[in-house]
């Protein structure tokens, strides 16, 4: 089973991620026990906390403990909210996922046609637009693009709602099915809420899309150009196949492979950009949870966030490999 073998290859990555997040909490300078004990703690109180938290034991023993907690889904407890980190992360995941997926759909939906048209007509105005977008897009700080969009569409044009979370104050969240407000409001048949949620979602997802579509459009254009210049396309054209069939079936299917590979890098960008975009738009997702915890020096949520994001990223890369395999039968997963 090639799929199983690919799953096994992901295991070392997961192990590495767990070891690094463990090291970030335990093996670094500074004594967490002093922090947890508070400023007025006596020497004895600190020693007790150190013992209670297991900091006085050897590093490998602590690691075994850490993994045991992880396997039970125990990521620790947030100091500021007093809630288990895992349940808080789970509660906030849909908000982040809805934002990121919308941004992904937007950026793929724009980048692919743009790159294809630019490759079909090199040197045309569309090609120049594509080049400007790809060069400028990667230079834009996401947080700055977000603020710029807020100024243009909320303050000046007045068409966008205030950048304050997933719903304005007049709407009530739809009943919880998937956690995605767009999906849930549709299931409930509540089109007013759907429109409100969509309005709130548009600017933050556009911000993320602007940043992530640049590498996608660039690689689509380059690989489409390479595919169109290759001999099998010449043969297909010479055999009298229609233009649409040559471009959409023959060239595109081959050109998509490097695009799928680039998606891995784009996901890395997006999971990072998520944090910044959520801060700008007060989006109640994973990123703003981690930022709030960082500001309060609340370590457990930050570590939980880093671990969750890394595991998510490993999974996304796994999915990319599987999609790649579906698109290109020549690729063997164990290679």
């Amino acid at each position: 089973m090639p799929v199983l073998r690919r799953l096994l290859i992901a295991l070392p990555s997961v192990m590495g991620v767990i070891v690094v997040t463990f090291l970030l909490t335990r093996a670094l300078p500074g004594d967490p026990a002093i922090y947890f004990a508070g400023p007025a703690a006596t020497q004895q109180a600190i020693a007790e906390i150190r013992h209670a938290m297991g900091f006085d034991r050897s590093l490998p023993a602590q690691f075994v403990d850490y993994v045991r907690h992880l396997s039970r889904g125990d990521l620790g407890t947030s100091l500021t909210t007093g809630q288990p980190v895992l349940s808080e992360l789970a509660a906030r995941l849909p908000a982040s996922a809805e934002l990121t997926l919308t941004a992904l759909v937007l950026s793929v939906g724009i980048a692919l046609p743009l790159g294809i048209v630019a490759a079909l007509r090199p040197g045309s105005p569309v090609d120049h637009v594509c080049r400007i977008i790809t060069t400028a897009g990667v230079s834009l700080p996401t947080f700055f693009t977000g603020l710029l969009l807020v100024y243009l569409f909320y303050y000046l044009a007045g068409v966008a709602p205030a950048p304050l979370g997933r719903l304005d104050t007049f709407s009530t969240p739809p009943p919880h099915y998937s956690g995605f407000y767009l999906v849930d409001s549709l299931i409930a048949g509540d089109f007013v809420t759907f429109r409100a949620a969509l309005g709130q979602l548009l600017l933050p997802s556009a911000t993320m899309a602007i940043f992530s579509l640049a590498p996608l459009a660039r690689i689509t254009r380059a690989s489409m150009l390479a595919a169109l210049g290759s001999e099998f396309i010449r043969t297909a054209r010479a055999s009298g196949l229609g233009r649409r069939r040559v471009v959409c079936v023959y060239a595109l299917r081959n050109a998509l492979l490097p695009v799928i590979t680039t998606l891995g890098m784009v996901f890395s960008f997006m999971l990072g950009a998520n944090v910044l975009v959520e801060k700008v738009f007060a989006w109640p997702g994973l990123g703003s949870y981690a930022v709030d915890a960082l500001i309060a020096s609340d370590y457990a949520p930050v570590q939980g966030f880093v671990l969750a994001m890394a595991l998510l990223y490993v999974m996304l890369n796994l999915m990319i490999d599987l999609i790649y395999c579906l698109l290109d039968p020549r690729v063997r997963l164990d290679a």
Partner: peptide
């Protein structure tokens, strides 16, 4: 192992640690 993390998130984690 470094590449297994989303890079900005890893940077946040390192600075937090």
């Amino acid at each position: 192992t470094i590449m297994a993390f989303p890079l900005f998130v890893l940077a946040m984690g390192i600075v937090a640690g």
